[in-house]
Every structure is written in structure tokens, then in C-alpha cells.
Design a protein around this nucleic acid. Structure first.
Length: 244
DNA sequence: AAAGAAATCAACCGCGATAAC
DNA sequence: AGTTATCGCGGTTGATTTCTT
């Protein structure tokens, strides 16, 4: 079957996204949802391919994204899942709250592949510490540090995390629980989940059970419903991009 | 201090799956 | 049933950053 190109290549911007483009995409998706990725850039005022917009949103701009600083548990899980699932990155990422398939894939290729291959603890320790420094430096990039801080907070309080069932999610969507983690900041998300007592690491990330596209995003953009529980789409990000 | 090598990761590309007509 | 449009996934690339010499 003949395939149309994903977009008209002429005049479309490629490469790294600018804060201005991020702002436009966030503003549009927040207001209208992603009803059609192919048409979205046209209405959002972006000279980008729809696919590019989708990728940017899914991997970096949407709520609940967690970046950098993989915990030992996460890494072990990735290694184990990769052994059983192979290169099914989306399936692997689904088991890791806040992680995207792209990021898991990158992390595998840059670090875990070596580890699983040679199990060199001393080298791992060296690489890990070096990597942490790099990550922290990158997190301090002025244009993105807000996002990273915000996403960290999200993971600490997000209703999408597996401690709430999907039925609970709808009831907690009002954001009433959004501050309950505020006093537990010293506990990493992983540690927190490990304490839940359930089978968190064997359960599919809740967001993965969500309907996709407009049905997924529509609740996210309902004013007053999810914002309080999603700082990245809430005040911090809005102020960052001057959307308030 | 500078240059080259290596590592990292954001983003692109192409393809398969599937929904819509 | 066939065709088209769109989405989502995995592989890959290339710019940037960091390390090593």
C-alpha cells in the first residue's frame, strides 16, 4: 500500500526543540488536547511534523516524566525485563513509572548493556558516579531545570502512580491527595513503592491502562481537575512558559 | 590548553498495526 | 474487502558534552 509521508517535508523545522516551540505545544495540547497529531502543528502554530510534536510531548513535555538518576531497582528491572521481553522498550518502560521507552532504550544502550554483559561492579560504580555528575549538570540547564524539578515532584505525588487503582484515580483526580507526599521528600519514588507492599514492580504502569490520544489527554486538561496534581502542567510550568 | 576520542541523549526515520472510510 | 490515514514502536543518527591524552 502506498504510504503518504508523515508530513510535508518542505518548510518543516527539524532538530532540537526551542523553549518557544515547547511553549506553543504545551499551550495547545493543554487547551485542546491532542485530537490529531498530524493536524496539530498547523493549529498550534508550529512548523513541525506531527510526529515530531507527538514525540516531544510524549517523551519530554507530558506530565509524570521522570528523568535521570536511575535507581538500582529500576536498572535491575530493566535488565530483567529485557532478558524476558527483548527490545520491547515500550513494554519495559510501561513497568517503570515516569520513564519513556526512548529513555529506557538510551539507558540500556549506554549503560545497562555493558553491565549485563560483563557485570563489572567496579566499572559500574565508576560509570555510575560519572553519569550522576553529568545528569546533575544537565539538570541545571536553566531552561529545563524547572521541568526536572517539577517532574520529580510529580512522581512524588502523581495520582497516576500505581498506588492508586484506576477507579481510585477518578476519585482522586480532584487533586485532594496531591500534597500528601510533601513530607516524605527523602524517600525516592522507588523506595516508596517498594514499601507499598503490593506487587508494584509487577504491575503495569497505570498510565499504560489509560485510553490514548484525546481520551487520555482530555482529563489532563480539564481546568481544576488535574492541574493541582500535575505540577508540570500546573503553575510551575505555566509560569515557566508564561502561560498564566 | 587544545585536540581527538568516547559517551550521551534528543530527535528523526521507516515500518507495522489498526482504525476509519 | 480494499484503501487510506494515523499512531506507536524500535532502530538509528547526529549534535553536544565530557573525558583522555
Amino acid at each position: 500500500m502506498a504510504r503518504t509521508p508523515c508530513c510535508d517535508k518542505s518548510g518543516l523545522k527539524k532538530g532540537t526543540w526551542t523553549p518557544e516551540e515547547d511553549k506553543k505545544l504545551i499551550a495547545y495540547v493543554t487547551k485542546h488536547g491532542c485530537w490529531n497529531w498530524r493536524q496539530l502543528p498547523k493549529y498550534a502554530g508550529l512548523s513541525r511534523c506531527g510526529k515530531s510534536c507527538r514525540l516531544r510531548w510524549m517523551n519530554y513535555l507530558r506530565p509524570n516524566i521522570k528523568r535521570g538518576n536511575y535507581s538500582k531497582q529500576e536498572e535491575d528491572l530493566i535488565v530483567n525485563l529485557h532478558a524476558s521481553l527483548g527490545n520491547r522498550w515500550s513494554a519495559i518502560a510501561a513497568q517503570l513509572p515516569g520513564r519513556t521507552d526512548n529513555e529506557v532504550k538510551n539507558h540500556w544502550h549506554t549503560y545497562l548493556k555493558k553491565r549485563s554483559g560483563q557485570n563489572s561492579i567496579s566499572r559500574d560504580a565508576k560509570l555510575s558516579s560519572k553519569k550522576d555528575v553529568i545528569i546533575q549538570k544537565k539538570l541545571l540547564k536553566p531552561e529545563l531545570s524547572h521541568l526536572h524539578n517539577a517532574t520529580h515532584q510529580i512522581l512524588e505525588s502523581s495520582p497516576f502512580l500505581p498506588q492508586t487503582s484506576s477507579s481510585e484515580l477518578s476519585s482522586s483526580a480532584s487533586g485532594k491527595d496531591c500534597t500528601t507526599r510533601a513530607t516524605e521528600d527523602d524517600v525516592s519514588p522507588v523506595e516508596m513503592f517498594a514499601d507499598i507492599g503490593g506487587n508494584f514492580w509487577t504491575e503495569v504502569f497505570l498510565a499504560d491502562n489509560y485510553p490514548t490520544n484525546e481520551h487520555f489527554l482530555a482529563p489532563l486538561i480539564e481546568p481544576g481537575v488535574l492541574y493541582p496534581s500535575s505540577p508540570i502542567i500546573g503553575e510551575e510550568l505555566f509560569s515557566l512558559y508564561g502561560l498564566q
